Simulated assay, not measured.
Amino acid sequence: MRRRVLPGFHLSLGITLFYVGLIVLLPLGALVVKAGSLGFEDYWRIISSGRAVASYRVTVLSAAAATAFNVVFGVALAWVLVRYSFPGKRLVDAIVDLPFALPTAVAGIALTTLFAPGGWFGFFFDRIGVQVAYTPLGIMIAMAFTSLPFIVRTVQPVLEDLDPALEEAAQSLGGTDSEIFRRVILPLLTPALLAGVSLAFARSLGEFGAIIFIAGNQPFETEITALLAFIRLEEYDYQAAAAIASVMLIAAFVMLAVTNLLQSRALRYTQRS
């Protein structure tokens, strides 16, 4: 009988379900129960208030813009790290993971210091009449900084595993560089890219520490939903905080469901091709 390194299926499944229930389902269940204790009219009044709707708009639009930027920059960065050798490559590769290791509050303070009107970068932006700190642009930069690794680290392994023969065959058939990337490489990257996009967007939606220092936190202008929920907690209005948080929870579930659907379709298309 072959010896198994890992414990049996039943024990592994039991430990996994216990962990998921304790760490994930229990807090989410408490949130749903707290929000459900409100009547529908009170729940709707809280989540549809002008200030709440404004926070949704700021959060979602900023997260979408940050994710769109990271799709372009993250794929380009992953491409450079995989396809080229240059001095300092290992350092650049390590810096990509810096947002994972750096406390988000520290990142927020650093970004505010850099992009404030008197900061190293903010000084130059201020000279051309562009204010970054305490504006939605600052929120986008903070979100892009904290979510960039999700794009790079999901695309990078796929690029490393791509068979060079596919590109060579496309070149022999007269394909240009742009056509090869669009018709050969991009379809193979799509499932991983969709996973990275969903993770980056979800991280941006829930980001807090890196944003509150650079955002300015002005209601209706630069106040994100996570901060509004935190404010309600500080006011001991736990039901309102739970109601606002539940909106983001529902949005995250819908986004993940749509992303999984798109991933499965992209994977089937890739396999047929």
Rank of each mutant, 00 (worst) to 15 (best):
V5W: 14
G8F: 03
F9Q: 04
Y19P: 13
V20K: 10
I23C: 03
V24F: 11
L25Q: 03
G29N: 08
L31N: 09
V32W: 11
V33E: 11
V33W: 14
A35G: 09
Y43G: 09
W44I: 07
S48G: 05
G50F: 01
G50P: 06
V53L: 15
V53P: 01
S55F: 10
S55T: 12
V60N: 08
L61Q: 12
S62W: 10
V72N: 02
V82Q: 04
R83N: 03
P87V: 04
A94V: 06
I95D: 04
I95N: 05
A101L: 13
L102Q: 00
P103Y: 05
T104E: 07
L111E: 05
T112Q: 12
T113R: 07
F115Q: 04
G122Y: 04
F123Q: 15
F124L: 15
F125G: 02
R127T: 11
R127F: 06
Y134I: 05
L137H: 08
I141Y: 01
A142P: 06
A144Y: 07
F145I: 08
F145P: 05
T146S: 15
V155G: 08
V155T: 08
Q156I: 02
P157F: 02
E160G: 12
D161V: 09
A165I: 01
E168S: 02
A169R: 07
A170K: 12
D177L: 09
R183W: 10
P191W: 06
G196T: 02
V197H: 09
A200E: 01
F201M: 12
S204D: 13
L205S: 00
G206N: 01
E207R: 01
A210I: 01
I214W: 10
A215N: 01
A215H: 00
I224H: 01
A229G: 14
F230W: 13
F230R: 07
E234S: 11
Y238C: 04
Y238F: 15
Y238L: 12
A242F: 09
L249N: 01
R272C: 04
